[in-house]
């Protein structure tokens, strides 16, 4: 009786490990297959890598927009909806930046031109920030702000202007 139970247990154990081996063996082949098929879709985006483990797809790398990040996830899913269990999207989005004129000397020279027709205001430049003081008619505030914004500064501070 004891022997029989032991036998049953070992048979079960063997068939269990066989079953696991078969599954993992089978999924290894299709993992590699899935990986190459997804890679062929996402290669258009440099910097994105694909990894597949037991049907779970992991996407990594960086892109320039959230829309791009989602589009890659969706196209990866669409490659084989049957065999892809899930997609882990670890792609990060680069924070976009704009070019700013941080050369104070250059900026100050341009500010002189931009404010030439505004004799009632005084503009100073420090660390890429244009600060304006003085008095100005309301109707001319927008023109001044447009002229200064067009110089690509870090910030335009006209809060101290007294508007008439």
């Amino acid at each position: 009786m004891t022997m029989t139970l032991k036998n049953v247990i070992s048979v079960l154990a063997i068939s269990c490990s066989l079953a696991i081996a078969t599954v993992s063996c089978k999924s290894k082949v299709s993992d590699a297959d899935l990986k190459s098929r997804i890679e062929s879709i996402v290669t258009s985006t440099p910097g994105v890598t694909v990894d597949v483990k037991e049907g779970v797809v992991t996407l990594s790398g960086t892109v320039n927009s959230e829309a791009e990040r989602e589009a890659i996830e969706n196209s990866a899913k669409a490659v084989d909806s049957k065999n892809i269990k899930s997609v882990v999207n670890n792609i990060t989005v680069n924070a976009p930046t704009v070019e700013i004129n941080t050369d104070d000397a250059d900026l100050a020279a341009k500010v002189v031109d931009a404010t030439k027709d505004f004799p009632t205001v005084k503009a100073t430049v420090k660390d890429g920030i244009i600060t304006v003081t003085g008095t100005l008619e309301q109707s001319r505030v927008q023109v001044l702000k447009q002229s200064l914004d067009a110089l690509s500064p870090k910030k335009v501070d006209i809060a101290a202007i007294e508007i008439k």
Partner: peptide, 16 residues
């Protein structure tokens, strides 16, 4: 822009 920030006094936008 002028409606949202009258006279552009907040200085939190640079529009080019």
């Amino acid at each position: 822009y002028n409606q949202l920030d009258p006279n552009f006094l907040s200085g939190d936008v640079v529009m080019h």
